[in-house]
């Protein structure tokens, strides 16, 4: 680790000779250490799911939420440092409010993503600050339908049909790529999202985790909210069942090999 930056990683205002800014890449690493967060954008809405890793059994259930709401209808899920996340969520809320104060209409997803992206990017320019150790998923419904954006520590923001960040992002991405977004209801997407988080979860590294699920869709009247409890339970059941099935298949294959 000591030789990685070789002096070019001391400040965000210094490039390395091959044109990289190491501090930004380190911020990305902070994101990669976090529990997985995914977003799925289907026809009727957007679903956010987070694997919230718990460091203690003593934590109050549902505390330290990693999915938050900004301006009622924007969902913000994040991977990375929670303290940085809270700061960015406040920024999103302030932007949403000021846009509404000026234009008397809710802020479109593309604009909130652009503004958050610009804000995050500004923290990659000055030696006196460090970049945000957070990737942020933004979910909302606007006049162009459901929207999903991800803002990275570099300030890059891109719109997605489905995306994943955090520890399990490789596993999650391969699972997301198998999905048929065009023919999927929001309720199905919730179940798939739960399944993907369960699949991406690595029991050997982190034992305790809590699944967070939220959506923005017609059923929620365009508001961002946690999915209803019955749907949550259904999704968890579905996720656990499909994990068991996978395990059975693996066992069968092992049995075959024994023969």
């Amino acid at each position: 680790m000591t030789s990685i930056g070789t002096g070019y990683d001391l400040s965000v205002s210094t490039y390395s000779p091959d044109g990289r800014v190491f501090q930004v890449e380190y911020a990305q690493k902070a994101v990669d250490n976090s529990g997985t967060a995914i977003g799925l954008r289907v026809k009727g809405g957007v679903v956010l799911a987070v694997e919230k890793i718990k460091h203690s059994r003593l934590l109050v259930p549902h505390s330290n939420r990693r999915i938050m709401t900004a301006g009622k209808y924007i969902g913000v899920a994040s991977a990375g440092w929670m303290s940085d996340t809270r700061h960015l969520v406040k920024r999103v809320r302030d932007e949403a409010r000021s846009y509404n104060d000026v234009y008397k209409t809710k802020i479109p997803a593309s604009i909130i993503a652009e503004r958050l992206g610009m804000y995050v990017q500004a923290y990659t320019l000055y030696s006196s600050v460090r970049p945000f150790g957070v990737s942020t998923l933004l979910a909302c419904m606007d006049r162009n339908g459901p929207q999903l954006y991800m803002v990275e520590p570099s300030g890059q923001y891109v719109g997605y049909r489905g995306c994943a960040v955090g520890k399990g992002k490789q596993v999650a991405k391969t699972e997301i790529e198998k999905l048929n977004f065009d023919n999927m209801s929001v309720r199905e997407a919730v179940k798939e999202a739960a399944r993907i988080i369960y699949t991406a979860h690595d029991d050997t590294k982190d034992k305790l985790f809590e699944l967070e699920l939220s959506w923005v869709c017609e059923e929620s009247n365009g508001l961002h909210e946690h999915v209803p409890q019955d749907l949550y339970d259904e999704a968890v059941q579905y996720a656990e069942r499909s994990l068991d099935e996978d395990e059975d298949e693996d066992n069968e294959m092992e049995d075959d090999e024994d023969l």
């Binding site: 938050m68 709401t69 900004a70 301006g71 009622k72 809320r93 509404n100």
Partner: peptide, 15 residues
Amino acid sequence: QHTLENIMTQEYDMD
């Protein structure tokens, strides 16, 4: 109306 809308939004976001 606008002021109340802002207050209710703040409350909603508090969750």
